[in-house]
Simulated scan of single mutants.
Amino acid sequence: MKVIVVFALISLAAANVEYYTTADDNLNMEEVVAEIERLQRYVDCFLDRAPCSERTASYKKIIPESLMTKCEKCNDAQKHLAHGFLRGLKAALPEEYISFRLKYDPEDKYFDDFEKAVDGCHQPKTQRMDNAPLGAYRDDSRISKMKWIIVLSALTVLARAKDLYSTENDDLDIDGLVKDVGSLKAFLGCFNDIGTCNAEAADFKKDMAEAVAQACEKCTEAQKHIFKVFLEAIKEKDPEGYKIFQQKYDPQNKYIAALQTAIASY
């Protein structure tokens, strides 16, 4: 009797799953991936490059959540569509496949599990359409996982490089500057809004608040060295100015310690 009750509860829970609603669960994805231009229109919608049709918009809105939950709320038809789209995209437009992964899973936490979750919901190969290119349905194993990891890692590094602050003044002679108390205080006055800024000081100032809050995450190695030497110098030679700096950029004392740790070795 207990077993029957358990199975009944499981069946009731399954029946109460709230599946996603899309404009067309019965889309023939095999036809879409067989036509590169049509496939590209889907990609452009998903990557925010172009307007979406009602159908593609309905798919796009469920991508983030379905990816993080391994398509938990997807019905079988939706899993089949996801599998067909990703397999076709990887084969026909591999660079766009990488762009898709980077947009929706930049930390590479969910995508592999998502692909495994939808992998069992594809049509048998005997149902491949005659006019579809054979390459579009080649098994995913032909591209090793290691190769994709290498490519994704390289693109992540490139994306990271693009996010770094401008290197225009990385050659600043900070050691020479801090020896001249007048120049040091002029820089500090700029940062603290109590003096004018020359071009170099203004360049550093524009990123100062973010650099402090993010522990110099986007700083180059040269900038971390500059920041370290500058902070050590003002703390020693102008403690009152240092307090004003800290009050301006870290009034709740939440970031300075982490910043100093991040730049300590530079």
Score class of each variant (00 low, 15 high):
2 K>D: 05
3 V>T: 13
4 I>W: 02
8 A>R: 04
12 L>T: 01
19 Y>I: 06
21 T>L: 01
22 T>L: 02
22 T>K: 03
23 A>W: 02
23 A>S: 08
26 N>T: 03
28 N>S: 10
28 N>A: 12
29 M>W: 05
30 E>Y: 09
31 E>M: 12
32 V>S: 03
32 V>N: 01
35 E>M: 07
35 E>L: 04
39 L>V: 09
40 Q>N: 12
42 Y>Q: 08
45 C>S: 11
47 L>K: 04
48 D>M: 07
51 P>A: 11
52 C>N: 03
52 C>G: 02
53 S>D: 08
60 K>A: 08
63 I>K: 03
65 E>H: 12
66 S>M: 11
67 L>N: 05
68 M>I: 07
69 T>V: 08
70 K>A: 12
71 C>D: 00
74 C>D: 12
75 N>T: 10
78 Q>K: 04
79 K>Y: 10
82 A>C: 09
82 A>R: 00
88 G>C: 02
88 G>R: 01
92 A>F: 05
95 E>A: 14
95 E>R: 15
96 E>M: 05
98 I>C: 09
102 L>H: 02
103 K>G: 07
103 K>S: 06
104 Y>T: 05
110 Y>G: 04
115 E>F: 11
118 V>C: 06
120 G>F: 07
122 H>A: 15
125 K>I: 13
127 Q>N: 13
129 M>A: 13
129 M>D: 13
130 D>P: 03
